[in-house]
Design a protein around this nucleic acid. Structure first.
Lengths: 209, 209
DNA sequence: CTCGTTTCCGTACGACTGTACAGAAAAGAT
DNA sequence: ATCTTTTCTGTACAGTCGTACGGAAACGAG
């Protein structure tokens, strides 16, 4: 038996190289050769683990959403008040601290692929649907707790929060100097307040984190 | 004197070809050759009007925001109630009808460039700032009319509306089947209502258009 | 018709792309 | 030490790309 490498780990390693290249030079520069150079391997070696470039890029993209899901699960055992559950959910998905922001930038970079590539489009629809459902769940929590403003349409509000979330993501990635983490937090808090009954608004003495 | 062509018009004609290509095959496919083929000219001919590819793409992108500005001015002489001014402003900028949606898709396609190219970044910042100011103005109109909810921070709300707008733009471009024009309108109307004093909410018997 | 300018095009060069393929290097099992 | 399978690499091919350059075509003024 010959030398054996953990294929999955090697693939993750190469995906990280994809991130680095995309982050530095854009998604158009994520060629097989560039990724190989970044990872310190020969292009043919990359080819050994990913038969095609598309496979490589798709895998790299899928890893970012896996990361987001994991980040989300980290303390979803968070039975505190539904209001801060909404906040932490958004904040976990929309990474504001240093490294994790790369995932958002990757997402923006890959958006251009969604317009063209059918697979990327399907993948995007899938994760978008999951995000919508997640937001619908946490907003449903507000309603169940009787904290939501009266006449609030949970489905509509989930879409609205989702759109706000996507917009903030884009702006964090494309205009980090204008849309700072503090500003993002302020916008999100204001938005959540707008979902609540007046008596539950404000008083974010402990903006989680 | 030889044959004379209107350079500016020819440039606009070529920019339209850029749109068509970007729309169909993505921004990565917007090569000089592809644009020339689309426009029915030789690649060298395109070169005659745009010395470099970058010049071509930048010009095409700038034309889309010119279009948006023009669309905006079309009936900005609209002194009706400030509430529907907010709505029409958003709707004019976020084209929902057939053709004009291409501009939004172009914007999404070009976002990936913003992450990399310094010029694209500056251009994006500039237009984003203008959009923010515009939103701040119309929201200021709500406040001045005494229709805004109490304790409303106009600057913050301008940013929030801007983020919602960008998110809707992305979703309209990437998931048109989920985010239909009707859904967009519903989300925007709900958002505007959340900015108002309770007594001014609802009753959009005449959603403009 | 002829000249001069503008407009347009064909060609060419160097660089990069994805990927197919054949063979070299590595390393555990015998 | 030898064998066998995995791992890795070099090379090659057929594209596409941006763009520089020289010359052809078009066309208005004289």
């Amino acid at each position: 038996m010959p030398k054996i490498v953990d294929h999955e780990q090697r693939r993750r390693e190469l995906a990280s190289a994809v991130w680095a290249v995309v982050r530095r030079d854009g998604v158009a520069a994520a060629s097989v050769r560039a990724v190989a150079r970044e990872a310190g391997w020969s292009p043919s070696s990359v080819q050994y683990y990913f038969a095609t470039q598309d496979e490589l890029l798709t895998f790299a993209m899928r890893m970012t959403v896996d990361g987001a899901e994991q980040r989300l699960r980290e303390d979803s055992a968070n039975p505190e008040d539904p209001r801060s559950l909404v906040f932490t959910t958004v904040e976990r998905l929309l990474p504001l601290d240093s490294d994790a922001r790369v995932a958002t930038e990757l997402w923006v970079a890959f958006l251009s692929r969604v317009l063209i590539d059918a697979d990327a489009r399907a993948f995007n629809s899938q994760t978008a649907r999951e995000t919508s459902e997640l937001f619908a769940t946490v907003i449903g929590g507000l309603c169940d707790a009787g904290m939501a403003a009266e006449g609030l349409d949970a489905g509509l509000e989930a879409d609205r929060l989702h759109a706000l979330f996507d917009g903030l993501s884009v702006q964090v990635a494309t205009e980090p100097e204008r849309m700072t983490p503090e500003r993002v937090r302020a916008v999100v808090l204001a938005h959540i307040d707008s979902l609540l009954l007046p008596e539950h608004r404000g008083g974010w003495h402990d903006p989680p984190r």
